Simulated scan of single mutants.
Amino acid sequence: MCTGKCSRIIGVLLFPLGICAIVANLLLYFPNAQILEVDQITDFVWFFHGIVGAGLLAFLPAFMMLGAGGDGCCANRCGMLLSVLLSALGAAGGLYCVIISAMGLIQGPKCDTGNNMFIYPFRNTTEEENYLFNPEIWDTCREPENIVLWNIVLFSILLGIGAIQAILCLIQVINGLIGFLCGTCMRKRKTGVA
């Protein structure tokens, strides 16, 4: 497979992943479709890991990959080198999303346990008491309703998207280096002989 075609495929895959990451991050601001006060929202949502990390930082290399993989001014060795640099940035954004999502899952949601104060009831638990593996303690959170499941699902989606994007961007780094060193394998234009 030509490095240009591989770039286009990876670029096309990054767009829906980035959009899904942005939507998942935005949904974390509205737990169980409720509007809460700023101080009632889980802290790790404010790191914008889905919007910036797996969203915008994935779109930059995706645009360049589409340009580097097509016919035009970017379909050359310099375009492939630029796609390597932007793909490294995209991989860093994906890893950022993975790290913040994992930390959000470990800490658990911020919720009201019944005393009208929003706290982190699952923070500092041991592995045996971890809320992720004990759904029977999820009802500790009274408000917003189903906040534990909401956070687990959305942070898990963001973790998965970030991991996939980081892998795709790292593949593009290797692909781009090959394209830079060996060329993009574009078809030779036929020259007519008179």
Rank of each mutant, 00 (worst) to 15 (best):
residue 52 V to W: 03
residue 165 Q to G: 13
residue 113 T to P: 01
residue 194 A to S: 15
residue 5 K to S: 11
residue 92 A to R: 00
residue 86 L to A: 05
residue 17 L to C: 13
residue 51 I to R: 00
residue 164 I to L: 14
residue 170 L to V: 07
residue 170 L to T: 12
residue 2 C to G: 10
residue 127 E to A: 14
residue 92 A to T: 02
residue 191 T to L: 14
residue 105 L to G: 00
residue 87 S to A: 07
residue 166 A to I: 03
residue 152 I to A: 02
residue 87 S to F: 04
residue 190 K to D: 15
residue 155 F to D: 08
residue 45 V to T: 09
residue 80 M to L: 03
residue 21 A to P: 01
residue 11 G to V: 09
residue 153 V to P: 03
residue 157 I to P: 00
residue 2 C to P: 15
residue 187 R to M: 14
residue 63 F to H: 03
residue 9 I to F: 11
residue 105 L to A: 02
residue 135 P to Y: 01
residue 116 N to M: 06
residue 45 V to L: 00
residue 46 W to V: 04
residue 65 M to L: 15
residue 60 L to N: 08
residue 114 G to T: 01
residue 153 V to K: 05
residue 146 N to D: 12
residue 54 A to T: 02
residue 73 C to F: 12
residue 139 D to H: 11
residue 32 N to R: 01
residue 62 A to Y: 04
residue 164 I to K: 06
residue 143 E to A: 07
residue 68 A to I: 04
residue 148 V to I: 09
residue 75 A to Q: 08
residue 182 C to A: 12
residue 140 T to P: 00
residue 134 N to C: 03
residue 154 L to R: 04
residue 32 N to A: 09
residue 186 M to C: 14
residue 163 A to N: 04
residue 182 C to Y: 14
residue 28 L to F: 06
residue 15 F to D: 08
residue 183 G to W: 10
residue 80 M to W: 06
residue 99 I to N: 04
residue 36 L to G: 02
residue 51 I to D: 10
residue 48 F to Y: 14
residue 7 S to M: 09
residue 53 G to W: 00
residue 132 L to Y: 01
residue 185 C to P: 09
residue 8 R to C: 15
residue 67 G to C: 04
residue 21 A to L: 00
residue 38 V to W: 12
residue 15 F to T: 11
residue 33 A to N: 12
residue 161 I to T: 09
residue 111 C to R: 08
residue 130 N to G: 09
residue 190 K to C: 14
residue 131 Y to S: 05
residue 194 A to R: 15
residue 6 C to G: 10
residue 9 I to Q: 07
residue 41 I to D: 03
residue 96 Y to F: 09
residue 149 L to W: 06
residue 76 N to S: 08
